[in-house]
């Protein structure tokens, strides 16, 4: 299974640049529009979470691996920042629309579009693995 590796540096601007670079290349460039759009939403949230929380605004390496399987993408994202609180994924809690919250939407978007989310703290690494359905995309 061909696997694509992408390296980027944390930070809002470099995440934007890294995301743009990743989505222009394989396997994302061969996906149907809707699948590519889902990948962009999920990856933007995952990468910005790392930049804001794991690295707390400091620069640090982020590595992304993507493998395409029939009907889905398998993704792995690793960083060397602080672990998730309690070494586990945050609960899925979408703010009620009426609260007019200005944040707290990121993990909900990730959970709504990705499946088989798994987080592990491996020594000094954070590792997040998940799948994205690509059923709208031809082989």
């Amino acid at each position: 299974m061909a696997e694509t590796a992408i390296e980027l540096t944390s930070g809002a601007k470099s995440v934007r640049e890294g995301l743009r670079r990743a989505l222009r290349g394989p396997p994302f460039d061969r996906l149907a529009m809707v699948d590519r759009s889902n990948a962009e939403i999920v990856l933007a949230e995952v990468l910005n979470n790392i930049a804001e929380h794991a690295y707390a605004g400091r620069p640090g390496p982020i590595r992304l691996w993507v493998a395409r399987e029939p009907g889905r993408l398998c993704l792995r994202v690793e960083d060397e920042g602080r672990p998730m609180p309690g070494h586990r994924l945050p609960p899925d809690r979408l703010p009620a629309p009426g609260e007019l919250a200005e944040g707290g939407f990121g993990w909900h978007l990730i959970r709504a579009l990705a499946s088989d989310l798994r987080y592990d703290r491996c020594g000094s690494l954070n590792r997040l693995c998940f799948h994205l359905r690509t059923e709208q995309s031809a082989g």
């Binding site: 949230e45 919250a101 200005e102 944040g103 990121g106 978007l109």
Partner: peptide, 9 residues
């Protein structure tokens, strides 16, 4: 993204 959404809110 969610930061952009937060800014619109």
């Amino acid at each position: 993204d969610s930061s952009g959404l937060g800014a619109v809110v």
